[in-house]
Amino acid sequence: MALVNAGVLVLDCAEPEKLAVFYKELLEGEEADATANRVEIRTADGFRIALRRDVNATPPSWPRPENSLQAHLEFVVDDLDAVERRVVSLGGRPLEAKDASGPWEERGYADPAGHSFTLRRIPPTAPKQG
């Protein structure tokens, strides 16, 4: 029997109810649990993210060096442009960052409360046709 049954990424923010709407829509998830100070979202594939109330929460400044990255989410997507439009329509914003090295294409964003996350597309491994 596993000692740890599940993992939940928890982000502190001033208004968890509002931030939960952003992640629920972006991830096409459902509210799994909610209290006065915490809202948890669960996706169809079992990913869980919770938003916890912290009235003094301040977002990291990444990619600027004044404040550490702390933590960020990374979402693997097929169409960066389509998901970027969705992020912006939900109140997220692009972050300026250096191009990532390596085989992935990725772009950085901040959610409406300022938490950073990355959209990453892995190039197809099948040979190009035509």
Rank of each mutant, 00 (worst) to 15 (best):
Met1Gln: 15
Ala2Met: 09
Val4Ala: 11
Asn5Asp: 14
Asn5Val: 09
Ala6Gln: 07
Gly7His: 12
Gly7Glu: 15
Leu9Trp: 11
Leu11Asn: 01
Asp12Glu: 07
Pro16Cys: 01
Lys18Tyr: 06
Ala20Arg: 00
Tyr23Pro: 03
Tyr23Asn: 02
Tyr23Leu: 02
Lys24Thr: 14
Lys24Asp: 11
Glu30Val: 10
Ala32Ile: 08
Ala32Gly: 13
Thr35Leu: 06
Asn37His: 14
Ile41Gln: 07
Ala44Trp: 01
Ala44Ile: 05
Asp45His: 09
Gly46Trp: 09
Gly46Asp: 14
Ile49Ser: 03
Ala50Ser: 12
Leu51Ile: 12
Asp54Ala: 08
Thr58Cys: 10
Trp62Ser: 01
Trp62Asp: 01
Pro65Glu: 04
Asn67Gly: 09
Ser68Glu: 00
Leu73Gly: 04
Phe75Cys: 11
Val76Asn: 09
Val76Leu: 11
Leu80Asp: 13
Asp81Glu: 15
Val83Ala: 05
Val83Arg: 07
Glu84Leu: 02
Arg85Tyr: 08
Arg86Pro: 10
Arg86Gln: 11
Val87Met: 05
Ser89Ala: 15
Leu90His: 03
Leu95Asp: 05
Leu95Met: 09
Pro103Val: 05
Trp104Arg: 13
Trp104Gly: 05
Trp104Pro: 06
Arg107Glu: 07
Arg107Asp: 11
Tyr109Leu: 08
Tyr109Gly: 05
Asp111Gln: 07
Asp111Asn: 05
Pro112Ser: 03
Pro112Ala: 00
Gly114Lys: 00
Ser116Tyr: 00
Pro124Gly: 11
Thr125Ser: 12
Ala126Met: 14
Pro127Lys: 04
Gly130Asn: 14
Gly130Trp: 12
